[in-house]
Structure formats: C-alpha cells, structure tokens
Design a protein around this nucleic acid. Sequence first.
DNA 1: GCGGCTATTGTGGATATCCGCAGAGTCGGC
DNA 2: GCCGACTCTGCGGATATCCACAATAGCCGC
Lengths: 198, 198
Amino acid sequence: MTTLHIVDDDEAIRDALGWLFQSRNVPVAGWPSAESFLESWRPDTAGCLLLDIRMEGMSGLELFDRLLSKGCRMPVIFLTGHGDVPIAVGALKKGARDFVEKPFNDNELVDRVIDALAYDAEQREREAGQAGLAARLATLTQRERQVMELVVAGRLNKVIADELGISMRTVEVHRSHVFEKMRVKTAVELTRLLTGAA
Amino acid sequence: MTTLHIVDDDEAIRDALGWLFQSRNVPVAGWPSAESFLESWRPDTAGCLLLDIRMEGMSGLELFDRLLSKGCRMPVIFLTGHGDVPIAVGALKKGARDFVEKPFNDNELVDRVIDALAYDAEQREREAGQAGLAARLATLTQRERQVMELVVAGRLNKVIADELGISMRTVEVHRSHVFEKMRVKTAVELTRLLTGAA
DNA sequence: GCGGCTATTGTGGATATCCGCAGAGTCGGC
DNA sequence: GCCGACTCTGCGGATATCCACAATAGCCGC
C-alpha cells in the first residue's frame, strides 16, 4: 500500500488523521503546508493526497492547480470546513477525486482514501507499461516511425512505398526493423500495441 | 443544434430560462415536473438537461438516478438554490456535467449549456458509428466470429486452422467473409475497427 | 424434397509479406 | 580519413494471404 499524504496547517488535525489512518494500516505522511509538499513532490511520488482547502500561505486549491500543471496525476481528496458549492464543483471538474466537508465520517473517509490509493496503484501500473512502450518507440528512427504509422493505418507496403516515394524493398526493411524494435511479429500486434488494446 | 430540456416546477423560472436560451438561439423544451420528462424520455432523446433539484414530487436527483438506470447518457446540469456540498459532490461523481447555484450568471450558464449540447452531439455521432459496427458484427456467423477474434489477436491463418482444428483453406474463406461483412480490406483495419482506434 | 445458409475442403494461381545476401550514398563523430 | 548510423535499392526465394472455381455435407423452412 502506498502512502496517504496529508496536507494541513493544523497540527492537531494532521495528528488526528494520522492516528485514524495508521490504525487502519494506511501509511501516512504529514505536511504542514502546501509549499512544503509542493517542494518535496516528484513525478514518481505515489499514493493519494488529502488536502485542506484553507491554509496559511498557499491554499489547497492553488496547490492542486500547481500540481496539475506539473503533470501530477495523483488522486486528490479535498477536506474542508468552509466548502461552498462553486469551489467543490470547480475542484471536481478539474479532476479532484472527492470533496469532503468536516465534520466527516471516519469510516467513509478511510474507504474513499483506500479506493483512491488502489486507483493510483492501478494507474501507475498502466503507466509503467506505457513507459516501456515509449522507450521502445524512442529507439525508432524518423523513417521507421513514418513507415510504422502507415503500417498501423492499414496501408500495404506498395502503397507506403508510393506515399514515401521510396522502393518497396526499403519499406520492407524499415518495417522489419520496426517489428524487431517494437518486439512484435505482425502488423496486427503492432496496431494493438499502439492503440492500447487488451 | 439539439434541444435543451428544462425541468423545473416553477413556471416563472422555466419561462425566464426559456427566454434566455431562445434569445441565444438554443432550442428549448420545458417540463413542469420530473415525472413528465421521465415519461416522455426515449433512448434517442437528444440534447442536454437543465434540472432543478428541489421540486414537488420527484426531485431532480431522483430523476437523474432513474435516467441513469435507463441508460440515459445525456449531459445533465443541475440548477439549485438550495445546494449543499455533499449533494453537489454526489451528483458530479455520478456523472452530472455541472452543478450551478442560483443566482447564476446568465452568460456562464449559456456557455455551459452550449458546451454540453456539443458534447452530446459528438457522443451521439460516436454511438451511431458503434451502432453500425454492431449491426455488421451481428451478421457474422459463429465460426466467422471465432476466426475474426483470432485474426484480431494477431494469429496467422495456419495457427488459427490449428486452434480450430480445421483446414487453412476454410480459415481463409471465413476470414474473407469477415472482411467483406465488416467492410475492411486488411486485418489491421479490422483490428482498428474493433479496438475503437482513430 | 428442394433451395438457402453454413461449414468444410481442395487446386492452382496472383499478390503480398518476410528475409538473407549484397552494395551504395550521406552524415556526424573520433 | 575511418567507422558507425541511417537510408536507399536490387535479386531471389520462402511464406502467407487473397481469390476464383469447384465440390460435399448438415440443417432448416417452405
């Protein structure tokens, strides 16, 4: 199980939440400010975020925005005692996972956090697969990439040769290099790889 | 442009919204109750829904639930003067497109409705494509379907023949029937069709 | 029973794909 | 200048795919 990151400037609340989650075997990290979390955040930081809205300095919402613009995809659950509807709606539409008002129900919150952690883990697994794919794609040359795109578009070799203004033999060579580098044996497998099929 | 369906038991509000949207060239249909809309709703009802939460009889939220369970995918924008955060969060997490509190900004609401209508139109176009695909799939025989699945899985004809315990020639026949019925010329195109690629 | 649909298989030939062998030109780095 | 890459091309042969022609057989409905 990955970590729940609790960002709240109220130490008492951090402690209370820390106790709650640790008692349910959810690993917790506490952060006293949006700034402190933002600074320590790395693209490979895993888990989920429990974020207070109203804090000294940077607000939870602003932290969320900054994380999004840095490409953070971690699920975020907002926690607030001062939530109003437009804020909640805005946060959810931006992709927040949940928006919970204090006082909250302990069990419910724990369930939502656990769901979010599971979601994050799944997400990261998917991305790991995509990363391997991206690495293999990166080894292709320009020409190989062009040929690959046309192959995946369903064109026959002779058509590809025409469109690129080169001989069929050359297309065949690039094609076989693509297959080798992408570790597939047929055009169909390649198509499935790139279109993200099962 | 398809229709905006306004469901509100307050005739004055329906009229006011009707004027607002008609002045922006958005076709409007008004419904005095959740029940009346629910009764007239059909799976091919297009457009988007502007839904008051608090109404006599069935509430907007309940109408939303019932529509969802009937398979309705129309975008829904909730409109309420009594919204609280948990209700808004719940509605959005169930798939509502937006949740707007009264009093609202006219221009903003119109923009959101127009976005929602465009989204619905796009969605329906996609589904129309899928329906055509489903119709073509339905014309396949058992055997053809089996062969198709193996082809799309990237198997060669000889392997398919082995797995199904039939001759290569028979596989070729089924394969060509599949291509004909699905209106594609190559295995790659077929794969793209079935995996829903661009 | 006859006609239509489905499934099966074969022969033979036209295309397409896969691949090793061979060679050649460009470009950038050591 | 040499070496390594990327690109390009041809030849020939092994496989694979596509397809027309032809035929057998079971099942279902009229």
